[in-house]
Amino acid sequence: MNAPKHRPAGVHLLADFHGVAGALLVSPESIDTLLRNAALAAGATILHSHFHSFGPQQGVTGVLLLAESHISIHTWPEFGFAAADIFMCGRAAPSLALEVIERALQPGQREIKTIQRGVPAFQDE
């Protein structure tokens, strides 16, 4: 019996958070913990993470690698802005990860774009 094929389809959420308290956007350790909690809430499998601070009270960039894809973030505390990417396939629920991140950052304003990935416009079955 052949194993079922894993389809490359997934949901990619692009989130812009404005009006975030700058203090929430400067600690790579705190942001790592936040994204890990978001991934677990979504039912994703964490493989590895790497976060980089650009200096005291400066922004952070980082990525959480998942078996289901990734969550990445880039922060600008001086502007109260964070940009997050949440891309997941399989049974993981990226919207649940988004809820955890948004609840923690409490943005004054947000913009979310949802992109379906890996699904061709014309599919031959």
Rank of each mutant, 00 (worst) to 15 (best):
G118V: 07
G108S: 15
I101Q: 03
E102I: 06
I71W: 04
R110C: 05
C89A: 11
V100H: 02
W76H: 14
P107I: 06
V100A: 06
L64D: 06
E99I: 01
Q116S: 13
A97I: 00
V63Y: 04
K113Y: 07
L65N: 07
Q109P: 01
T75G: 09
F81D: 10
L98E: 08
A82H: 07
Q116K: 14
L65Y: 08
P107E: 10
R91Q: 10
M88I: 06
T114Y: 02
L66N: 01
E102N: 04
R117A: 03
G59D: 09
R110W: 01
E78M: 06
T61A: 13
S95F: 03
F122L: 13
T61K: 04
K113M: 03
M88T: 05
Q116G: 00
E102T: 15
A121P: 00
G62E: 03
A82M: 07
V100K: 05
R117K: 12
I101T: 00
T61N: 04
I101V: 15
A67M: 12
I101K: 07
E102A: 12
H74N: 11
I112T: 13
L98A: 05
P120Q: 06
L65R: 10
P94M: 04
V119P: 06
E68C: 05
G118P: 07
G80A: 04
Q116D: 08
H70F: 11
R117S: 05
Q106R: 15
Q116C: 06
E102F: 00
G62P: 07
R110Y: 03
R110V: 11
E111V: 10
L66F: 02
E68Y: 06
I71G: 04
S95H: 11
A84M: 11
G108T: 15
M88Y: 01
S72Y: 01
F122Y: 11
G59E: 05
F79P: 00
S72P: 02
A104K: 12
S95V: 07
A104C: 04
Q58S: 13
Q109E: 14
V63G: 10
D85C: 07
Q116I: 14
Q116T: 14
E99H: 05
A121E: 11
A97K: 03
L65P: 01
P77N: 12
D85T: 03
S69R: 14
P120E: 09
A84R: 00
I112W: 07
I112S: 04
V119E: 13
Q58P: 01
V100C: 04
M88K: 03
W76S: 07
A97N: 01
G90C: 10
S95R: 14
A92G: 13
I115G: 01
G108M: 12
G90L: 02
A84Y: 02
L65M: 12
F79H: 11
G90E: 12
W76Q: 08
